[in-house]
Design a protein around this nucleic acid. Structure first.
Lengths: 195, 195
DNA sequence: ACCCTTATACTCGGCACCGGATATACGGGA
DNA sequence: TCCCGTATATCCGGTGCCGAGTATAAGGGT
């Protein structure tokens, strides 16, 4: 049975192990410290499942089992050659091939016609405000990271997110105006349906 | 136990049932016809699970059980008052509150430094090309829909997607140039690590 | 010396989800 | 008339994921 690239947490684990061998809990700590959990969903339950799966597929090996005092055993894992190959191949695929992602907002906005125009305008504006806040928070964070001397490459995904958030805000602004002014295509019918 | 808003497929089911009562298979057909499955992930297995869950929570009721010849029984469901309320409330939440979504590309690009710059450039350009194709395909589709006389509100989510794809393409173009010219912050170290 | 909080490190049961299997009806070509 | 592919309609077994639970150790205040 070949390894299934489902949970990106497995990717993060492989990436961490390229630096040095670690035990699962340490991986989690490191991910926290580096704010990686903002990009890859971290969940203790899943972490151990994922590590076990990587181990079964021999992408990582149990390098050592430490035991300090009466504490639970800590299994330290290291990445294998196959593991490194898998990491790189997976990474290339993730970047090169855009994959259909079912985003919550797309689902929501596709059914916005079910709400009366006034309510729709309200919720869109609320989102717009929230996105605005995220944007300023992100700008502050980027400022801080740059100030700490971290290279841009270390937080490139935030740069990407910034661009996406800006685009979203602009679209939301357009939609809000078009709804307020009734210029969105199909507006008359929309209003009629809600009386 | 209160209903959990996990699977957006449940949202689509509620939305469909505002039009008329349907049995599960008919819901699936209708979603196909309207290209809703591009926005909400449709899966027969999940559909029946989701419908059952909605039924348990009394957001829909079994309006009738039809039986034609020797065919399997078809249970026709209708939306309830609570169901309609839930639909609207869920919809408002989806639109108004941006939710952290763990996007595959963000995970990938955050680790792009693990690939040698030349490979990184290659995969980013490949994605850029793919996004370009999606953009033209989408433009054609929008043209067609508008030509069919469908109001913009009926395909508003595609409009949103268009805006996001454009922004992504621009960002990818920037990153590709910055990588090619070595102007992305941290480039020297990146190159050094891969020799 | 004692207690309480926080950190360490993992375990486990439940459940949503998915893909493929199942079973019948129907239409059309040879 | 017989077969076979497609449409109709649902079911079900396996699995990955999640959140909450568990248990010990370390630290620090009084």
């Amino acid at each position: 049975m070949t390894f299934k690239r489902t949970n990106p947490l497995a990717l993060a684990v492989l990436a961490l192990l390229t630096e040095r061998p670690m035990h699962p809990y340490e991986m989690a700590q490191t991910m926290r410290e580096r704010h990686q959990e903002e990009v890859v969903k971290l969940n203790y339950g899943s972490l151990y499942t994922v590590v076990e799966s990587l181990h079964r597929h021999e992408l990582i090996t149990a390098a050592a089992v430490q035991k300090a005092g009466n504490r639970p055993e800590r299994t330290v894992y290291a990445i294998t050659g196959t593991g490194t190959a898998e990491l790189h191949s997976w990474l290339r695929a993730l970047i090169a091939e855009p994959a259909r992602e079912y985003r919550r907002f797309e689902a929501g906005i596709s059914m916005v016609g079910l709400l009366p125009p006034a309510e729709a305008l309200d919720v869109v504006q609320r989102r717009s405000a929230a996105v605005g806040e995220q944007l300023t928070a992100l700008a502050v964070l980027l400022e801080k990271l740059a100030g700490m001397g971290l290279p841009q490459l270390a937080w490139i995904e935030l740069d990407y997110r910034l661009a996406m958030l800006r685009a979203e805000r602009e679209w939301l602004a357009w939609f809000a105006t078009a709804t307020r002014e009734g210029t969105v295509g199909g507006y008359p019918g929309w209003e009629d349906r809600h009386r």
